[in-house]
């Protein structure tokens, strides 16, 4: 598969002001991530990994520097344009409470397609297919509270992937799961990464993810300390 650069950051800086004091969370990160990567961003607390992921996903705006996804400068986007860009290009998996509890599994997964105005029939077909991929066939009408933590994370992954985004950003996706469930989930994401070619970027402390990631970016004090491709 031909690999192209999908994320490119250049001298990315993010400074926060707190009680008049300036704190630099990211101090000039320049790197590229290519399609199909299975990358883990690691580092101790306060190393800037959360800020870095927020910046490359367009959830936050940099103080200086640029972020490009698919050659589009998202660091300059705002409001509706940015919302639509995230909707169409980035899938998110959060640590926990990922799903809307009042919606069924199917409704949670189809939410992004609804925002994209995908017809009902197609939405349903795609939900059924993705549920099959994440091993949750027949669970489309369940509510999140009727699922285990691992199953909920699978639904979150299904929701992130169902609209075929360019990349999936996962923030500590295994943090609230036991090691067996975490391992199964990680294995499933690895398979999805290999079969679909979708790019996965994790922010994690989980040793399991670090071991399985094909690229390990270590941040410390807001800068890239190591960038290891395996």
């Amino acid at each position: 598969m031909e690999q192209k650069t999908i994320i490119s950051t250049e001298n990315l800086v993010k400074t926060y002001k707190d009680n008049g004091m300036e704190a630099k969370a990211v101090r000039g990160i320049s790197l590229e991530i290519t399609s199909g990567e299975f990358t883990a961003v690691v580092g101790p607390s306060g190393s800037g990994k959360t800020t870095f992921l927020n910046l490359i996903s367009g959830l936050d705006t940099p103080t200086s520097g640029t972020v490009q996804i698919n050659n589009r400068l998202i660091s300059e986007m705002k409001g509706r344009e940015l919302s639509d860009f995230r909707r169409d290009n980035i899938g998110f998996v959060f640590q926990s409470y990922n799903l809307i509890p009042v919606l069924t599994v199917e409704e949670n997964i189809e939410y992004i397609m609804l925002l994209q105005n995908v017809p009902k029939r197609e939405r349903h077909d795609r939900v059924i297919k993705i549920l099959d991929k994440v091993g949750l066939n027949g669970m489309e009408s369940r509510r999140p509270t009727q699922l285990s933590g691992g199953q909920q994370q699978r639904v979150a992954i299904a929701r992130a992937m169902v609209s075929n985004p360019t990349l999936i950003l996962a923030d500590e996706p295994t943090a609230n799961l036991d090691s067996k469930m975490g391992s199964e989930l990680l294995e499933m994401m690895k398979v999805l990464n290999e079969t679909t070619g979708m790019t996965f970027i994790f922010s994690t402390h989980d040793q399991m993810i670090m071991e399985r990631a094909r690229r390990l970016i270590t941040l410390k004090d807001g800068i890239v300390k190591t960038d290891e491709i395996r």
């Binding site: 509706r80 169409d88 899938g91 809307i100 992004i112």
Partner: peptide
């Protein structure tokens, strides 16, 4: 947090 998720996945402010 839930609104944050909705917004993150592409829900417009409107």
């Amino acid at each position: 947090f839930e609104f944050g998720i909705l917004k993150a996945v592409g829900t417009r402010p409107s």
